[in-house]
């Protein structure tokens, strides 16, 4: 990913900070001009909760080239504690741990590395919750 693109969306990638519609509550990962669901124009910045539960997951076997080093990797649909659903890579799990309803928490990880000389792109992933 080109550097300005990665950089623009750091608040969401690092901290799950986005914008929620004041009218219908829809969450937006990138700053919108207008709500994508109800077209309301009042949106407020919100930091999503960092814990939730796994709704569904899969292990991706056919890896796009950006993800060779973590291949095979897991993608989960996570329902956060406030009900927002987000897609995330899962990390630090034993395969036998993954199940629907598993409590998970956000962690800060390397997402993609642009070769030997390019930028390291960081972002959120989710792992089994440590209590």
């Amino acid at each position: 990913m080109r550097v300005p693109r990665y950089w623009r969306n750091i608040p969401f990638r690092y901290r799950l900070v986005g914008w929620r519609c004041n009218h219908c509550g829809t969450f937006h990962q990138e700053k919108p001009i207008i709500c994508k669901r109800c077209r309301h124009r009042e949106l407020y910045e919100v930091e999503l909760p960092k814990t939730g539960k796994l709704v569904a997951y899969t292990i991706v076997q056919s890896t796009p080239k950006e993800f060779n080093l973590v291949s095979p990797y897991a993608i989960g649909l996570v329902e956060l504690d406030d009900g927002t659903r987000i897609l995330a890579q899962l990390t630090d799990f034993r395969e036998d741990e993954l199940r629907e309803g598993l409590r998970v928490e956000a962690v800060f990880r390397k997402i993609r590395v642009d070769g030997e000389q390019g930028i390291i792109e960081y972002g959120y992933k989710f792992r089994p919750l440590i209590e």
Partner: peptide
Amino acid sequence: FIGADFYALNAL
């Protein structure tokens, strides 16, 4: 950005 490709979305 996170590698949620077509197959991953279909699997979910």
